Simulated assay, not measured.
Amino acid sequence: MKPEKIPVYCTFYDAPEHVFPGHPESPQRLQLVKPWLQDPPYPEMVWLNFMPALASDVLRVHNATILQTLQAASRRGSHEIDSAPTYVTEASYHAALMAAGATLAVSRRILSEGRGRGFAIMRPPGHHAEADRPMGFCLLNNLAIAAADAVAHGLEKVAIIDFDAHHGNGTEAIFSHHPGVGYLSLHEEYLYPGTGHQNSAPHARGRIINVPMPSFANPAAYLGVFQQVVKPWLMGFGAEMLFISAGFDAHFSDPLTSTTLDTDSFYQISKILVELADDYCQSRILFGLEGGYDAQALHDNIQACLAALCERSTFPDHYGPSPGHPSGSPDVEKIIALHQLRKE
């Protein structure tokens, strides 16, 4: 049964001192969202306070090496630490713990309420961070930490859906052999970091699913995957909570990608995910911000997702509809067969 309107728990952390000259992953990404702290777009939104994640929280998915590496790198001051390029500043170690803490605060509130919806609007992002190293603009894997925390606090199965345009290699690697965590990624094929092939993770068929999307993939291609792959997967997996790696760099305005989703696409995708969480995940769903590097589009796309979470239908859309490039679609029939998904 669909629940009554419920609060949507949110946190906001823009890591103002985690910034590097000319880098696209900067506090400017969230400059248009910050006013919501005083004037939220929907009355259902409830802002939560949060603290930095503890080392014990982080160590559920990372090893001690990554904390030592980040702490030592931050002490050195502002510099790049990989070729992505990923950077740190003196404030980055604290920023990474705060982003993870902002995500945990929402997840734990949902768990304590027994059901709920939420959005951790934070940076730096996380889904590229592996157990032992930061990479791809990501320092700690925020969603992975929250998902593992939920399992540690009693959930038997959780699912992570990642619609960032880049494959979440870190999340997949962290949960590669964890039977209680499912991972499904839609991402632009051949894009950084070059992982997430359709045939990867053969040992985890039906639990880890990668859907590489062709360049210039349009809204119809994405929505088809959600109906034909995502929905039957969740129907059969048995997750008690749904975690969303919500990257918005698949928008057609984004400077780092070539997929062509629009703001309405993110609204439609979010509506589908909310309905799936209501039907199959005990009405528990958490969005956590990943990529998205056009500040205006990011504002509109986050609000579109919040509209779906708040059961609203109005949101700004400064760029309008997708340019509508014809695009190919992934081989959905092969994916269905590979993972033995049930067709409706």
Rank of each mutant, 00 (worst) to 15 (best):
G118R: 02
V230F: 06
Q227T: 14
G291C: 10
E156M: 07
P40G: 03
H167I: 07
Q68D: 14
T314E: 15
G116E: 11
P85E: 05
A100Y: 03
P326Y: 11
A337M: 07
F50S: 10
F243D: 00
S74D: 08
A131P: 00
L223S: 02
L261G: 02
I208A: 04
L184S: 02
P323M: 10
C310K: 00
S313Q: 14
M1Q: 07
A277F: 08
D14A: 15
Y87D: 05
P323K: 09
L298Q: 08
A91D: 15
Y9H: 14
G154Y: 11
V61I: 14
L309K: 03
Y192Q: 08
L139F: 11
P323H: 09
P214C: 05
S327C: 11
T171S: 14
S176M: 02
T103A: 13
A95M: 12
G238D: 02
G101C: 08
C310P: 01
H62A: 09
G154M: 09
I145D: 04
A105P: 01
L273I: 06
P330M: 12
D264P: 00
K34R: 15
S56M: 01
D162K: 06
S78M: 13
R115G: 03
Q268L: 15
A53S: 14
C138V: 09
E240F: 13
T11A: 09
H187V: 09
I174Y: 09
A277Q: 04
L261R: 00
S322I: 07
Q228M: 07
D82V: 11
L184K: 01
N218V: 13
G22F: 05
L155E: 09
M235P: 00
F12E: 01
R123M: 13
A152N: 07
G77P: 00
V158Q: 01
F243S: 01
P27A: 10
G182L: 06
P323E: 09
S258V: 14
A159F: 12
H318L: 09
A120I: 08
G206C: 02
L261W: 03
A307R: 00
F50N: 10
G118I: 04
D262P: 01
A159P: 01
H62Y: 07
Y183L: 05
E17L: 15
K34P: 00
H62K: 07
F216H: 10
M45R: 00
Q31E: 15
F137V: 08
L48P: 02
I174D: 06
K5P: 11
Y87Q: 04
